[in-house]
């Protein structure tokens, strides 16, 4: 039986908290970018213009058919070089966080766009007709009538996706970035207490995600009532 020793955790809390901040930062940015870019992708996918709809369909299918870890690695390898060229950064600048963020944002947009597309399609066609009949343009009808209703219907799904996203941020360990999971791994590795640290990290993920999903369910019940 493993002999548990939790003593290395209290001293490591500040370092773990820094890791948690990185996890939350990546999550927040990926949610915002995912919703904005995902909405544009969804509108393109539903567009009458073939080229736009094919582009969006191709994008979504590509990102949904590739493991996230691989996307993160690609961006880990490509983005720093791009930034060096675009911004004239010195070679070797630490661009792990931006590249992880870009990778996440682009990957998650594919999933968000499918949720948003379903949300847009859940708004009755008559609402769009009514908006047009009042003289609204396509953009006005979307912005004022369709999207507000679509997002209201989508809140539970968006929250669920955000929870999955938060868990997925642990995959940035492939770029040796010290997010919460990465930080826990490093501390455990250093002190030879990997099992304890990983159990602790797992418990923290569980408490945060389970509370968030309870909140989502409560919102869903209230909205459905």
């Amino acid at each position: 039986m493993h002999d548990f020793d939790w003593s290395s955790i209290p001293g490591a809390l500040p370092f773990l908290w820094d890791g948690m901040k990185i996890s939350l930062e990546i999550t927040a940015l990926a949610i915002v970018a995912g919703i904005v870019w995902g909405t544009l992708l969804a509108l393109m996918r539903l567009s009458r213009f073939r080229a736009l709809s094919w582009f969006a369909a191709g994008y979504v299918n590509l990102f949904r058919s590739v493991p996230l870890v691989m996307v993160l690695l690609w961006f880990f390898l490509i983005v720093p070089q791009l930034l060096e060229i675009l911004l004239g950064l010195a070679p070797g600048t630490d661009a792990r966080l931006p590249s992880a963020m870009v990778g996440f944002a682009l990957f998650e947009s594919a999933y968000y766009s499918e949720i948003i597309r379903a949300g847009i399609q859940s708004v009755p066609k008559g609402q769009i007709a009514a908006a047009h009949a009042l003289g609204m343009s396509y953009g006005q009808a979307m912005r004022l009538v369709v999207l507000p209703q679509a997002f209201r219907n989508m809140v539970p799904l968006l929250l669920t996706q955000a929870i999955i996203l938060f868990q997925d941020t642990s995959l940035v360990y492939v770029s040796a970035l010290a997010d919460f999971f990465g930080a826990a791994y490093k501390v455990g590795d250093r002190d030879g207490r990997l099992v304890e640290l990983l159990l602790f990290a797992g418990a923290v993920y569980f408490v945060l995600c389970y509370s968030a999903s309870l909140l989502a369910r409560r919102y869903q019940k209230r909205a459905g009532a």
Partner: peptide, 8 residues
């Protein structure tokens, strides 16, 4: 419209 289509 038949179904009113007010914005809910």
């Amino acid at each position: 419209f038949q179904n009113f289509e007010l914005f809910p």
